[in-house]
Simulated scan of single mutants.
Amino acid sequence: MAPQTYNMFESDPYWTVETLTARDRLRIGNQTVCSLVDMLRLAARANGSALLDIRRPPPEHPRHRSWFMDTLWAVQKAGISPKRVTWTPDTDRGRVRGLPQSANEKLSLEEIRQRGITSLTLHYSKASHTDIQEYLAHNVSVTVSAVNAPWLYSVLWCSGVSSVSSDAPQVLRKVPYPIWLMSRSAYRFIWLTSDLVSIALVIGIFCFQNYHMIRWKMSGMQNYNPEQIVLSAVANRTNRDLNVMKEKLIFSELNNGLDSTEDISLFPENGYAIYSHGGLGD
């Protein structure tokens, strides 16, 4: 297969051609797409693997009938180990021998066994953590495609994904480990700090809700009952207050116009007072 040249200036899907300089246009216009043989040779030199997801050409294409044999010929000519080339298309899967089989859709474990598939290539939106763990438990490797963000790469890394495909390898190359991993000392510090803050919040809420009870206990009033408090208040009243109460009681009886010789004796602390119908004597 000879290299094919694609002129990007024939169509401008992203409307960015006008922003390029003349030098950039010349350099981009001379770029070519490498052949399948060159790509497989590059993978062999880098000790890498190749995933073939080739579609059958349309009927008017000159390779419409021979595309399958041309692909196998390219693999053989490149000199790469067949174990490093994974076959994805469902077309003519039974005729492919010696190449690991893969699929680019989510399949049940029964379908995977029937087709002899050993790996799956799924878009990241279709690869859940549960599915990944289930496939890995049955020795089915999973490759997740369209992984360009470091956070997504970290999530899949922790999920146990075998490999990922990306349009931004220069970004993922700078992520040597999941981005949210922390050292043991940092984890211990955050753990202890969160525990102490939680304890302080619980104590603060308890004190706020029981403020009056705590204040009553700390004042020492818990040693008195209500009867003792009332008696203490009465005993602390001054003699003047008691005399005023006595006078109010006497004059209230006079106003009622009592005709009987009823005597009312009041015995204050320092003397006595006697009231009778005839008068008032001290």
Results as ranks from 00 to 15, higher is better:
N270T: 14
D241H: 13
Y275V: 11
L249W: 09
G257V: 08
E253T: 03
F251A: 06
H277S: 11
R215N: 05
R215T: 09
M218I: 08
G279L: 02
S265Y: 11
M213C: 06
V230F: 15
S276T: 10
E262D: 10
I250Q: 06
S265T: 12
G279Q: 05
R240Q: 14
N210A: 01
E262P: 01
Q228I: 04
N223T: 09
Y224R: 14
R237S: 13
S252E: 08
E253R: 03
N236W: 11
H212T: 00
C207M: 05
K217F: 03
E227V: 11
G220D: 01
M221Y: 00
E247Y: 00
H277N: 13
N243Q: 10
I214Q: 00
N256E: 04
S219H: 08
N256Y: 04
Y224Q: 15
S219W: 07
M221F: 05
K217T: 05
Y211T: 13
H277M: 13
T261E: 13
A233G: 04
S219T: 10
D259P: 14
P268M: 01
E262C: 04
F267W: 06
F206Y: 12
G271W: 06
C207Q: 09
D259R: 15
L258D: 04
L231D: 13
M213D: 14
E227A: 15
A273R: 06
P268K: 00
S260Q: 03
A233M: 09
S232V: 13
Q228W: 03
K246N: 05
F251E: 07
A273H: 04
Q222G: 00
P226L: 14
I274K: 04
E262S: 07
L266E: 01
N243C: 05
E247L: 07
W216G: 01
F206L: 12
G271R: 12
N256G: 02
P268V: 00
I264T: 12
A235E: 14
N255Y: 06
I250D: 07
T261I: 06
R215I: 05
R237F: 14
A233L: 10
Y275F: 14
T238V: 02
L249Q: 03
A233S: 09
H212I: 02
L249I: 10
S265Q: 11
E269F: 04
P226N: 08
S265H: 14
P268H: 02
F267A: 08
Q209M: 07
M245F: 02
K246L: 12
N256T: 03
R215W: 01
N225M: 05
Q209A: 06
L280C: 10
D263P: 13
A233E: 05
S276K: 05
V244F: 02
N270P: 01
Y275W: 13
V244I: 09
V244S: 09
V230Y: 15
A233N: 09
I274Q: 09
N223Q: 10
I214H: 01
R215E: 08
I264P: 05
I214Y: 02
C207I: 06
G271N: 10
R215S: 11
F267M: 08
G271A: 08
G257R: 07
L242Y: 11
N255P: 01
R215K: 12
F251L: 06
N255E: 03
E262W: 00
G257K: 11
S219I: 08
A273W: 00
F206D: 12
I264G: 04
